[in-house]
Amino acid sequence: MTHKPPQDAGDRLDDALRALPPAVEPGHDLWPQIESRPGRPDPARAGGTGRDRWLWQAAAAILLVVASSLITATFIRRDTGTPVAVAPTAPTAGVHAVPVAFGPTHVLSPEYDSARRQLSALLEQRIGRMPASARQKLEDNLAELRHAADAINSALAEQPGDPLLEELLLNTYQEELSVLAAANQLSVAGGSSSSSDSSRVQL
């Protein structure tokens, strides 16, 4: 017969496990060894198609933007507790919806396009309530995502129908929607989350 720990002990154990930091820095920088490993892709091959180069760059850009957006979201959430002067700032170009493409052969769904336009319009109305620094970061992030989408679209024009490119582009557009939705939610202190359902739209 096994001894079963009481429920609270199990909960404490779960809490303790969750409290462990998932990231543990290696004792030394492993990058030089990774870079010099013979198993890594052949530079000539990778440079031949050009896809790996920008694919990694785009993936890195998206990750950085998402990470940055999370930081911005935290910053905005913290700031919404304090009164913020509502400056009648004219919305900058970074918030406006810009035309989106999906390579030369595909069209984005009307549902996505509609959600994106609505979120962009809402954000345009509300962005003036954000602290200036948060607004700047948000605009930078959106610009970065749109730059990544442009780069992927350019590559898709060269390699039409490439499934990896298409997936990455979908992902980029979804991230843009998520950033727009999160910004809309956070820009209204205690406001309703009218846009949360739009963060994952079937493209």
Partner: peptide, 17 residues
């Protein structure tokens, strides 16, 4: 290729720990 290595290094820095 230099761009690819730099991009990959960024990913490494983000995820290594």
């Amino acid at each position: 290729m230099a761009g690819s290595i730099a991009a990959f290094e960024k990913l490494y820095r983000l995820h290594a720990a």
